[in-house]
Design a protein around this nucleic acid. Structure first.
Lengths: 192, 192
DNA sequence: CAATTTTTGTACCCGAAGTTCCAAAAAGGA
DNA sequence: TCCTTTTTGGAACTTCGGGTACAAAAATTG
């Protein structure tokens, strides 16, 4: 019943994710969204209600695609250290290969909105928790396999890995070449 | 010659730093500045020219006070690991003790403006460089003193420390209690 | 095809953002 | 004291932000 939408809301959320990711929440205007989603203002507000609501959908989309991809890599089979290295190298490549230097949408959102927007903060917190848990699981697996030192606290090491990744993704936004980031990876894998 | 200013520009920059630090660049309005600096619009624009110019002064002030303080701690005499620990613990205390959860102004600026504002990006990059160098110097000192493993690459370890600190200050904005951050510190100092 | 429901585009609204203008005020110098 | 210079507060201005209103368009049901 009723007229069907002329656009794919799912695809629109994807594009909204790109915009918010690139510009941040405050610097994205309804006009930006209208331009980049290729739909009219009427449709935008009819479909999503508000800029804020669309932002939340966009951040959820990020969690379900980008953040989930990292977790998936960490859960692959094989030697743990190699897996960690390839995950970290991938992030570096993505971050430096991106001309817009967007970094990580979740990290950017933490920096911009944590302490101001409780719901957004919660979303980000849960992404961080999930990533940390994936790191921890990988480390425990490595310890069982005898690949990593069993004396180390796996949870603490997981926290260290999460935090380092978050830091890398901020630093990647400011850096000229990949050298510093490769140093970080080497030092980190050397150290755990 | 001419009428003297009714306010202290230096103190005004200090207050501007607080505002930009708390709200970010885009979300700070001239009205916010007028309110919080306690001066009129005319004075504001007469003295500083633009919001953007004042922002740069504010970020420079941050570098000369807050960022310099961390570097100073890292350059103190005494055992290196203890020094590193106290520096990291201090950051955790500052970040969690701050009701506004502002995190680090430089890190927030990187997340918001890197790739968009070259001058701001440069300022942040230099702060990162300086901090990394201070970490590296501390580590080399620890190696000379026999306190740290000489086989490790001091520069890479410095990069790791910088990156981890950057990550911690983002994570601190989203976190409920200090546990995760303390785990990070423990794992990091254990690992180097 | 009439009735109903939903979408779409456009016009419009109100307030705020970022800045400029300007006349009055306050200093120092001739 | 008059002149010059600079600051000050506030009005004014232009553009934009975020959102609403609404009539026309396009589908569905019977």
């Amino acid at each position: 019943m009723g007229r069907p939408k002329q656009f794919d809301p799912d695809a629109a959320v994807d594009r909204a994710m790109e915009v918010f990711w690139r510009k941040g929440y405050a610097s994205t205007s309804p006009q930006d969204l209208v331009d980049e989603l290729g739909i009219g203002r009427g449709s935008l507000y009819n479909a999503f209600g508000s800029k804020r609501a669309l932002f939340e959908l966009a951040l959820g989309r990020y969690r379900d695609t980008q953040a989930a991809e990292l977790v998936a890599i960490l859960e692959e089979p094989g030697p743990v250290k190699a897996r960690l290295r390839s995950a970290l190298e991938l992030l570096v490549e993505l971050d430096l290969g991106d001309a817009g230097r967007r970094g990580c949408f979740a990290v950017n959102t933490a920096a911009e909105l944590a302490g101001v927007d409780p719901d957004a903060t919660d979303l980000v917190r849960r992404m961080f928790d999930r990533t940390e848990a994936a790191f921890q699981a990988a480390i425990e697996e490595g310890q069982r396999a005898g690949e990593l030192d069993r004396a180390r606290d796996a949870k603490a090491t997981g926290s260290l890995l999460l935090t380092t990744v978050v830091g890398m993704r901020v630093v990647a936004k400011t850096v000229e070449g990949p050298e510093r980031l490769h140093r970080v990876i080497d030092a980190l894998l050397d150290a755990i």
